[in-house]
Design a protein around this nucleic acid. Structure first.
Lengths: 142, 142
DNA sequence: GTAGAATTTGGAATTATTCTAATTCCTACT
DNA sequence: AGTAGGAATTAGAATAATTCCAAATTCTAC
């Protein structure tokens, strides 16, 4: 996928959501496409500034959020909300209810855990896995 | 598992790591065992204060970190480090190299994704799943 | 009992992010 | 072409979560 192509799809996506394709948004998106090392907002800010020296950090945050909303970018460590603690040491996943903010433990059968571990290529040695669902919990146990 | 029992295992675990069993650590741990709703550090602080009114927030953070290190507690939203962004929209997991701090995309075959989704009980409607490995990446591509 | 280490404390500092209000930029309409 | 009104950007202040620090306290071992 050429960069220009990608930018076209950016304009398209933005337009679909009734948003404008601005230079800032384009440069932010390009920066993400060019070096796919999961940069932080600060790192994006630094890279974008070489092309748009007057851009502000707030704009970078705005653009990133816009791109996430348009489904062009994923935020990897969501949850700027505080770290949560749980004493359940059995292998389990978490379900985060987006409406209530509550977090539920979801039992994780060994065979599922095993299969998940098979996706790691040679050379990746995982000491832990975290599986987090997000969505709506309709019937809510305790 | 009775509470007393749990506290015994707490002393044990702490001792194993050459750490002391203090009232603060015990109360923090008990608070986590008593109400398993994945509280934040602030919430733990509030609950602990009813029993130890003079405890400080810094101590709560210290105790929580100690408990996590002793493998008695899991931190659910690790990563107090900044949110990271990636333009890869294919279903994929992430591998976080604890030594270098780098994050790698790990391809996620549909059948694995499907199996992961089967763990959700009735009433949980997930709009997204996040799978994050942590560990050591020995051979490191790109 | 006392030295030395571990722990706790309160407050300051830091970090990531969001808010705010003012300005600039577009777009659509005349 | 000129302008009203909304969208986007900007800089800096504000906030929230967490960590740091230095002093006081508490243990533990001798």
């Amino acid at each position: 996928m050429s960069e220009t192509h990608a930018i076209d799809s950016l304009s398209q996506r933005l337009a679909d959501s009734g948003l404008r394709a601005t230079p800032q948004r384009e440069v932010v998106y390009n920066v993400l496409l060019k070096k796919r090392d999961h940069p932080t907002a600060d790192e994006v800010f630094a890279r974008v500034k070489t092309e748009l020296p007057t851009i502000s950090l707030a704009t970078v945050y705005n653009c990133l959020e816009t791109l996430v909303q348009c489904n062009l970018v994923r935020a990897v460590n969501f949850e700027r909300s505080p770290t949560r603690y749980c004493p359940n040491l059995q292998p389990h996943a978490h379900f985060h209810d987006e409406q209530t903010g509550r977090t539920f433990d979801i039992d994780l059968p060994p065979e599922v855990l095993n299969q998940v571990n098979t996706v790691l290529p040679h050379g990746f040695d995982a000491s832990s896995v975290e599986i987090t669902f997000r969505g709506k919990a309709s019937s809510s146990p305790s």
